[in-house]
């Protein structure tokens, strides 16, 4: 199938190096300590953060750092076929783990020993790249909760179809069966915290694809920073002089 036309347009009209429209919003769940809503095209996710708070299960308490927990779920209505998915299936367990590890790498856990931070992410609408969208939403929510972090973590995926590296695959491109590289970085520190790919790709091409994904992450980081800045300005304004 042709995913990139000879005119250089993808199926949805983007060029290979273009991301989908992104939108982030802080404060989606008022009850949570921090929450955010994040959209990458038609992929919509919501994240809520609770904590740092007391550890629920004493036996899990860690004496010198905070316990980070993450739960990823997909709403039953998030995909077209409205299938009832069992909670805790392999895919969501894996993604929960991935998100937890990625976020743990940037939270300054040693500042909050013997406490617990819960991150809940839920996919409201899925159209490829849910993993990345969840990480981006979680970053925003953590920042909203005021949890100390080394840097923002942002994530973006890139693929390789029709011999062209493509940024930010949507569902159609994702299900083409080509390689899908998901990268998470700490943009300021320029460090990679997440790198996943479950296909074969020659080394040189892989590097190009990964570089593209990193560029995407950086663009998202800039956007998230803007959202946070805007949010802070509003908070300042509300507080009054």
């Amino acid at each position: 199938m042709e995913f990139v036309s000879p005119e250089g347009l993808r199926l949805d009209g983007r060029r290979p190096m273009e991301m989908r429209q992104i939108r982030g919003e802080i404060g989606a769940v008022a009850k949570a300590d921090g929450s955010a809503f994040f959209e990458m095209g038609n992929t919509k996710v919501i994240a809520a953060v609770y904590g740092p708070r007391e550890v629920e299960n004493r036996s899990q308490q860690i004496s010198d750092q905070a316990l980070v927990r993450c739960e990823y779920t997909m709403a039953n209505f998030s995909t077209g076929d409205r299938m009832r998915k069992p909670k805790g299936d392999r895919r969501s367990t894996e993604i929960s783990l991935v998100i937890r590890q990625t976020m743990e790498a940037c939270i300054l856990t040693h500042l909050m020993p013997r406490s617990q931070i819960d991150i809940f992410v839920q996919v409201l609408q899925a159209d490829g790249g849910t993993r990345s969208a969840c990480i981006n939403a979680a970053t925003l929510a953590l920042a909203d909760a005021g949890i100390p972090m080394r840097d923002l973590v942002t994530s973006c995926s890139a693929g390789y179809l029709n011999s062209t590296p493509l940024l930010d695959l949507n569902y159609v491109e994702d299900s083409a069966g080509g390689p899908d590289v998901t990268v998470g970085i700490l943009p300021k520190l320029d460090k990679v915290t997440l790198l996943q790919m479950d296909a074969k790709l020659p080394m040189d091409i892989f590097e190009n694809v990964m570089q593209l994904a990193i560029e995407g992450c950086k663009a998202i980081a800039n956007y998230i920073r803007e959202v946070l800045l805007e949010n802070t300005k509003q908070l300042e304004y509300r507080r009054g002089p």
């Binding site: 009209g13 429209q21 038609n42 076929d81 159209d127 159609v172």
Partner: peptide, 17 residues
Amino acid sequence: KTKQGKVVKVVREHYLR
């Protein structure tokens, strides 16, 4: 209509440039 005969609604983005 899917292969199994179910009818699904497909939503796709379409960027205008």
